[in-house]
Simulated assay, not measured.
Amino acid sequence: MRRYKRTLAAAALATTVVGGTAGWAAGDAQQAVTGPPPGSAAWRADGSPGRPLPDPGTASPRDIASFFRTLTPGRQRELAHRHPSVVGNLDGAPVALRYEANALAIRATRDPRYGRLAEPGRRILAFDPRGRGQVAEVYGDLTAARHVSVVVPGSDIDAGTFDRAKDPYGTPAGMARSLRAATGGRTAVVAWAGYTTPVGVGLDAATGHLAEVGAGRLARFTRGLVAAGAAKPALFCHSYGSVVCGLAASEVNAIDIVVSGSPGMRADRVADLRTEARVWAAKDPSDWISKVPNVEFAGLGHGPDPAGADFGARRVPAATAHGHTGYFVPGTDSLRAFAAIALGESAGARTAGEAR
């Protein structure tokens, strides 16, 4: 009977989405950005080192890290200045070199939308102006920090909405800054807007296509962090970002996967994620995502609620969070728990709700 009811709910969801009779239809279809970074053709054709450069589309982050270790700092910088849009996005390349390359690439676009990203002191680990723009920024010392976290955002996030004053804790930059502050600055946190997100709550948000592309990019990104000398990260995945993390779970190089406000992870239970990472879930009572049917039918919907008892995730307290973007707000039990997880303190995460 339970399965029958879920099937009926899924069929209703499919009818609603396709028929466009509810909020699910209020979104614009997006074309996912795929493939190697801009400038890759010129990079491949560059024979100046006297040997082929690693192919951005096929070389592994480990291979890229090995290649750069054979170069002097001067030769590394020459390549970064000649091919900034490639070096800035090469997972496995030296972190400081990527910061320098991306500052050059951002200034070269001469696009006012991105000018603030090139301000002194910002550590931009990835920048791709294609589509709506993608960006990753680091808060803290990525290669020296004992603990590293990566924030994976949901819908309506791109290079233009990466950081904003309105609803700051609904942006990857705001979440990352808040998480790092909650750890007392003892972590490095990456705000990763490195995939094409859905716009609104249309078909893109109800299906897994954009998440599938994002999952591949996230898996490569995490492998690149470790190849470049950073600690194995914890992932903090919000809303549709949890769909990305669910699809990437078996491939990401992560120690923890934490989802909040999740519509589902495209898995029936934790075991189906095929990951050795610890899986955590938070959902506050006032989050509107609870009204989204936790089903998957004909490619629509993302499966059971990760915060449900049957899923098997470790539950994160979220009684004092409010709304869909309230999980990283300072002073909430959810943020205290996130900080404990980010610091590798699992027991502290479970008791964060008692610290009020």
Rank of each mutant, 00 (worst) to 15 (best):
R2W: 13
R2T: 15
K5C: 11
R6Y: 12
R6C: 06
A11D: 10
A12H: 12
T15R: 14
V18F: 10
V18E: 14
G19Y: 09
A32Q: 09
T34G: 09
P38Y: 08
S40Y: 10
S48L: 14
L53N: 01
P56G: 04
G57M: 11
A59G: 09
A59M: 07
S60G: 13
S60A: 15
D63Q: 15
I64F: 02
I64H: 00
F67W: 13
L71C: 10
P73Y: 07
P73D: 11
G74Q: 13
G74T: 13
G74K: 09
R75L: 11
Q76S: 12
E78I: 08
E78P: 01
L79H: 00
H81G: 11
V86G: 01
G92K: 02
G92D: 05
V95Q: 00
L97D: 00
Y99D: 04
R107I: 06
R116P: 05
L117P: 00
L117K: 01
E119R: 14
R123E: 12
L125I: 10
F127N: 00
G131H: 05
V135M: 02
A136D: 12
Y139P: 01
A144Q: 15
H147G: 03
V150G: 01
S155V: 12
S155I: 10
I157R: 08
D163C: 13
Y169N: 11
G170E: 04
G174V: 06
G185D: 11
V190S: 06
G194E: 06
Y195H: 13
T196Q: 10
T196A: 11
P198R: 06
V199S: 14
V201P: 01
A206H: 02
G208D: 13
G208A: 15
H209Q: 14
E212I: 07
G216T: 05
V226M: 07
A227H: 02
A228K: 01
C237L: 05
H238L: 06
S239A: 09
V244D: 03
L247N: 01
E251D: 15
A254P: 03
I257F: 05
V259L: 02
V259Y: 00
V259C: 13
P263G: 05
R266E: 09
R269W: 04
E276R: 15
R278Y: 06
W280A: 04
W280P: 01
K283L: 15
S286R: 12
V292D: 03
F297P: 00
G299C: 12
A307W: 00
A309K: 15
F311V: 11
A313W: 01
R314S: 11
P317C: 11
A318Y: 05
A318H: 04
G323P: 05
G323Q: 07
H324E: 06
H324S: 09
T325K: 03
T325V: 14
Y327K: 06
V329W: 04
S334T: 13
I341E: 02
E345F: 07
A347D: 15
A347S: 15
T351I: 14
A352S: 12
R356E: 14
R356T: 12
